[in-house]
Simulated assay, not measured.
Amino acid sequence: MRAFLSRFLPELTPISKRERLRSAAGALAGILATGLVCRAALGSEALPVLIAPMGASAVLLFAVPASPLAQPWSILGGNIVAALVGVTAGAWIADPFVAASCAIGVAIALMMALRCLHPPSGAVALTAVLGGPAIRELGYGFVLWPVAANSLLLLTTALLFNNLTGRTYPHLRPAGPRTADPPSGARVGFRASDLDAALEDFDQLLDVDRSDLEQILRRVQMRVYGRLSSPITCAAIMSRDVIAVAPDAPLAEALRLLRRHRIKALPVTDEGARVLGIVTQTDLLDKAAWDRSGPRLGLGRRLRLTAERGRAPHGCAADIMSAVEPVGPDTPIAVLVPRMSEAGLHHLPVVDADGRLVGIVSQTDLIPALLSEADAPEAPICARASARTALA
């Protein structure tokens, strides 16, 4: 019986306790901020302050912010469209249950057509029809208050909370290359057109972004290749004489180190040699402004960093470094390929069990190792295929 009942439990993506706490705290902050601001702006109880569908919106915005159903256009467009449909149905159809049914059906059709599907919007349409005399008296004013006001305030809180706590929101599609070539990770294995055809055959709406689904499948593919290939590790190919830079080092110092040692990347480490990030030539070119005296922080980046950190930047390495997830010496090189490809990195720091920098692996280090895997006569066919795939 237990086995039978367990089949009805959904298989949710495994997440950490920290992520669960962050979701709960975000929903608390979102609803509280929305309610308090609306009550302060209203100044009376003549109009509804907070409508129930915002609770469902909070679940999406703070618990599954990567969902296509939780993006800014989804909540704003979906709630406003549903409110318009609900008010119209309530005004033109006498029977409330017929009006509610029509409102839900038409709202879903319009939201799907406008690409702003948001499940809580169904409750918004229902509220517009069955919300009682106070809601009906508002007429189309219900669309602006409380629906649009609640949605905008909740969305603003989600933007601030998610980004301040380390999430990226809204969930944007990864930037692709500015050439006709597909990304390196997409040149082997299944094609994007294969995924599109499979999704078309499945013919059901999935609560996952298509680009996220493609990345997940490619990671699975590379893990399979890595498991089947020979286990050459980072320790065998990494450079051990690593030049690092302190987070408070001026940009000019980072540039001097790159030029002096003829390297293209500098791990940023604290006093304990723990990796905080990495500064590359691309970071200096894209994130710094240049004049005759060398690199400096431009006004736009200064303002952005001030807003993110709550303090003024100092024009140092920490202000332009890229986030990076170091690997351990025992990490198989097949694991590095998807990480470097997806993040657009050419270098990955290697750290020991205590998180201290012990080496760095570059794409140049990977090439001979992958070629040796591919050309080893004793390697199994699947291992040689894996190495060629990773090299491509």
Rank of each mutant, 00 (worst) to 15 (best):
E373L: 15
R356M: 02
D365R: 02
L297E: 09
I80K: 07
P10Q: 06
A323D: 13
L366V: 04
L153A: 04
P247S: 02
E342A: 10
T179D: 08
P48I: 01
S229F: 04
L28R: 01
V242R: 06
G310Q: 02
N162T: 05
I31V: 14
A123C: 04
N163T: 02
A249E: 03
G315H: 04
V106Y: 01
L284Q: 02
A58T: 07
A149K: 09
D201Q: 14
A56R: 04
M321Y: 01
A387L: 05
C38I: 05
N163S: 05
R167A: 13
H314I: 07
P247K: 03
T280E: 03
D354S: 12
R356P: 03
L305E: 05
V245D: 03
I80R: 09
A244Q: 09
A41L: 14
L42M: 10
I80E: 08
R227H: 15
S341G: 11
L9K: 13
Q204R: 15
P177Y: 02
R302L: 09
L266Q: 07
P174A: 06
Q71Y: 12
E11L: 14
L114N: 01
A383D: 08
S121I: 02
L257N: 01
M1N: 11
L110Y: 00
V59C: 09
I108W: 05
P380N: 13
L228R: 14
A148D: 02
R311H: 15
P267S: 01
P120L: 05
T168S: 13
H347P: 05
Q215T: 13
R227W: 12
R218W: 06
V275Y: 00
I135M: 08
A289E: 14
I108C: 10
R173Y: 06
M112E: 11
V327A: 07
Q71K: 11
S193L: 08
A175K: 12
D286Q: 14
A376N: 14
G26A: 07
V324A: 08
R191Y: 10
Q71P: 13
P65M: 01
S23W: 00
S121M: 03
D203F: 02
I333N: 02
D181P: 04
R7V: 09
E378Y: 13
A63G: 15
A390V: 06
E11C: 11
I104V: 15
A252F: 04
R356V: 03
P313H: 00
R388P: 05
R304C: 08
R256M: 07
D270Q: 03
G185K: 00
V242G: 08
G189V: 08
A33P: 02
A40I: 06
C116Y: 04
R218M: 11
L228D: 12
P133E: 15
Q204P: 07
V147Q: 06
A109M: 11
A103G: 03
I381G: 13
A374R: 15
L153V: 04
S239C: 10
L126Q: 10
P250F: 06
A100Q: 04
P53C: 10
A376D: 15
M321A: 03
P247Q: 00
W92Y: 11
L228E: 13
A374I: 10
L138I: 03
W73I: 15
L258R: 04
P14N: 06
V268S: 01
H261C: 01
D283Q: 05
A94G: 10
A134Q: 12
